[in-house]
């Protein structure tokens, strides 16, 4: 296996990409506040699919923000792990949007979103084995050729593991990044969620991933369902996730940090204040990860995974939807 670093920038921290500081995920609920107050945020991350076809206010707002702040594009439909062909029209639009907004980089997830022409609009896991690795690495290389820039891939929160997996999550991520010569978006909340759901050690994961390839961090809140965690992006970052962030910050030397808040979205200053907490955790004086053990997860006795409503299984708490995605509501008179 060739593990050489093929990009001239691969030897540099973050592939030579800048540390943009502390950013906030751009959400429609905050458009007016941002345009009115121009808050002192270091950078914004925009969901690519919400803007790549927009010819209305969402794109207008993004363009205004891109004039004043660094922008990073974060996608949810690349479907790098799918066996369906790459969507070249999607990639063409993505590249155009990145060029027009001077996006510092483009990220998406190590996942598949659908197959046989369908899109579930979820970030679904793949078996972690040699066949998947070959497939994903070849696709990343193809995407990077088309986009003419490195792709940055995020570890998603996952809720199943496969019998056909032959390697750990961190081992797959490491080999993928090295062999495809891509960057990593380390979502420390997702590490925490997945490690809890799959009974592995979150700190070990953070210690093992290739730190020089970590271009960006994600932070978010999640929901503890008692038997498992769901990546709901609906609240504050909890202390054990901050502890993981602190560990990741130390090991990588720091990278652009972004807070996601997608459900029960509070006023912009609340979201901004949450990401600013990261400054405290960049101090080595704070306790390490060992002080923040994994959460207690119970074997279920009464909590069902699904409650049938009108003959169909729906999420028990309606807000417990992983990676909530939002349609931008129109403004109308």
């Amino acid at each position: 296996m060739n593990r050489s670093l093929t990009s001239p920038n691969a030897a540099l921290p973050r592939l030579g990409l800048p540390n943009l500081g502390l950013g906030v995920g751009l959400r429609a609920a905050h458009f007016s506040h941002i345009l009115e107050h121009w808050p002192a945020v270091d950078w914004f991350e925009a969901i690519s699919e919400n803007f790549m076809d927009s010819q209305g206010r969402p794109r207008y707002v993004l363009d205004r923000i891109a004039e004043r702040y660094p922008i990073v594009l974060h996608g949810v439909s690349l479907s790098i792990g799918s066996r369906d062909p790459l969507n070249l029209e999607y990639l063409r639009k993505l590249k155009k949007l990145a060029d027009e907004t001077a996006a510092r980089w483009i990220s998406d997830h190590l996942c598949w979103t659908g197959v046989a022409g369908r899109n579930t609009h979820d970030l679904l896991p793949i078996p972690l084995n040699e066949e998947s690795l070959r497939h994903v690495v070849a696709r990343i290389r193809a995407v990077q050729e088309i986009l003419e820039r490195p792709l940055v891939l995020e570890n998603p929160s996952t809720y199943v593991t496969f019998a056909d997996s032959t390697m750990s999550d961190w081992e797959f991520l490491t080999r993928m990044a090295e062999e495809a010569d891509c960057g990593l978006l380390l979502d420390v909340n997702n590490v925490y969620v997945s490690s809890t759901n799959h009974d592995w050690d979150a700190a070990e994961y953070v210690r093992r991933v290739p730190h020089r390839r970590v271009v960006q961090f994600h932070l978010a809140g999640h929901t503890n369902c008692g038997t498992h965690l769901i990546d709901t992006h609906d609240g504050e970052v909890i202390d054990p996730v901050w502890a993981l962030y602190r560990l990741a910050h130390e090991l990588t030397g720091g990278a652009s940090t972004l807070l996601e808040w997608d459900a029960k979205i509070p006023a912009f200053p609340v979201v901004h204040a949450e990401v600013l907490k990261a400054k405290r955790h960049m101090s080595a004086a704070l306790p390490g990860f060992a002080a923040s053990p994994q959460p207690r997860i119970q074997k279920p006795s009464t909590a069902p995974a699904a409650i049938p409503i009108a003959g169909l299984p729906l999420a028990a708490p309606s807000e417990a939807i992983g990676q909530p995605l939002h349609f931008v509501p129109p403004e109308v008179r």
């Binding site: 579930t120 609009h121 979820d122 679904l124 809720y159 199943v160 593991t161 496969f162 019998a163 759901n197 799959h198 009974d199 038997t227 498992h228 769901i230 997860i297 119970q298 074997k299 279920p300 995974a305 699904a306 169909l312 299984p313 729906l314 999420a315 028990a316 309606s318 417990a320 939807i321 992983g322 909530p324 995605l325």
Partner: peptide, 22 residues
């Protein structure tokens, strides 16, 4: 595979629940 807390069908149920809910 199952986890310590959930069996395989319950784990798949997390995705099934979210699909229609989302």
């Amino acid at each position: 595979t199952r986890s310590q807390a959930l069996d395989s069908i319950e784990r798949l149920g997390v995705y099934a629940n979210a699909y229609y809910a989302r």
